[in-house]
Amino acid sequence: MLPTSLAGPTLNWFKNLASGSSASFQDLRDKFISQYYRNKRPAKDVSSLYTMKQHEDERFQAFLTRFNLVKSIVMECHPSTAVQAFKLAMNRRTPYHTSLVVNTPKTIDELNEKADGFVRLEEEEAANARKTSIIST
């Protein structure tokens, strides 16, 4: 039944195993883990959030995506800790930073919800800048 649940590169890996190379299902499982364990992202601790910084020329949405990616592999991080790390990491000259200081979200979900508005604002400002440059040329 196992081959019917595999697809793509994993199915190719399975098909390329030498016939009789696994003496048991546990042996096959061990080979599978050995093959694909390298693809697993290593877990990080909360200090990795505190070492992040938004680059001067980095758009807010790109930074938010990068922060959430790192946050997703951090082990055991309290929501308020993640929010605090985000506040420290972001560019302080943005309207979103000011908004976070005035009204700090309690969870990452609240932070992301609030961030959506600023992402839309950033996108609109970029679109307006493109329109202005087209008109002026």
Rank of each mutant, 00 (worst) to 15 (best):
M1T: 07
M1Y: 09
S5N: 12
L6N: 06
A7N: 14
A7K: 15
P9Q: 14
T10G: 07
L11I: 04
W13H: 02
F14K: 06
F14A: 00
F14Y: 13
K15Y: 09
L17W: 10
A18C: 04
S19I: 13
S19H: 11
S19A: 15
G20K: 06
S21Y: 03
S22R: 03
A23Y: 09
A23F: 04
Q26H: 07
R29S: 10
R29M: 12
R29Y: 11
K31S: 00
F32E: 01
F32Q: 04
Q35A: 09
Q35K: 08
Y36E: 07
K40A: 14
P42A: 14
D45M: 01
V46H: 02
V46K: 04
V46L: 05
S48Y: 01
Q54T: 04
R59I: 05
A62P: 05
A62K: 07
A62I: 03
F63L: 08
L64Y: 05
T65I: 10
T65Y: 08
R66L: 01
F67S: 03
F67G: 09
L69I: 01
L69M: 09
K71E: 07
K71G: 06
S72R: 09
V74T: 02
H78A: 10
V83N: 04
V83Q: 03
V83G: 02
Q84C: 01
Q84F: 05
A85D: 08
A85Y: 08
K87S: 02
L88C: 06
L88V: 00
M90L: 15
N91Y: 06
P95A: 12
P95K: 13
H97N: 10
H97K: 14
H97S: 12
T98H: 04
T98P: 07
S99K: 09
N103L: 09
T104H: 00
T104C: 05
P105A: 09
K106S: 12
E110S: 02
L111Y: 04
N112D: 10
E113I: 13
E113Y: 10
K114C: 00
F118K: 08
V119S: 00
R120A: 15
L121A: 09
E122N: 00
A126V: 08
A129W: 11
K131L: 07
K131Y: 01
K131W: 08
K131C: 05
K131G: 01
S133G: 12
I134F: 11
S136N: 12
S136Q: 13
S136C: 05
